[in-house]
Amino acid sequence: MIPTPDLSHLNSKDFRNIYEPAEDTFLLLDALEQDQDELRALHPSICLELGSGSGCVTTFLGSLLKPSLAYMVTTDINPHAAIATMATGRKNGISIDTVETSLVQGLLPRMRHSIDVLCFNPPYAVTPSSEIAGNGIEVSWAGGIDGREVIDATLPFVKELLSEKGIFYLLLVSDNKPDEVVRLLQEDGFNAHICLQRLAGREKQLIVKVTRRT
């Protein structure tokens, strides 16, 4: 068992500004845990998470890979989330560097084809498109039409970022038309399949696992 990250340094006031880990976060942790042997055998040197929020996912991944060390780096457009991610890493003994940015702006071209593990729990909720702009807590969930606008903006970067051996874990909900996302990734030359799914209330949440076709 890999311990769920200790988030006791964050309180309800922090969670007014950053996304509090919930069922979706834990589904992503479970997908990583399910693949723990594969992830350790991969010996990743760079792990990137987009929109890391509290930092729960990257901290968990860093713990899973221990005693091996990888360069753990995350981005978030929300400054509160960037601070929280660093703090969660510190609290749990995982060194994480966080960049305050939108998705991967500023990280390319340097990170081209060098990400061994890429994680993204995107803003997936169906909302009016106008709610996507901003840098507060609303950007942690507002996904626009079909909840897909930020997801679709991110997909072209996957090809840029993933290393030859890289794995991408993407959380989606049924509103996002996951089969269509899988097909888009396959058309882009990737292996993509749903590796884990679960009902959270009325919402079906799932994890798409993506690798380069060999």
Binding site: I83, M86, T98, V99, T101, S102, Q105, G106
Partner: peptide
């Protein structure tokens, strides 16, 4: 200029700079 504050580099640009 990209500022670094409390160990966090800020790579965000204003709308007109992107």
């Amino acid at each position: 200029v990209y500022p670094i504050k409390d160990g966090i580099p800020n790579m965000l640009l204003a709308e007109h700079e992107i």
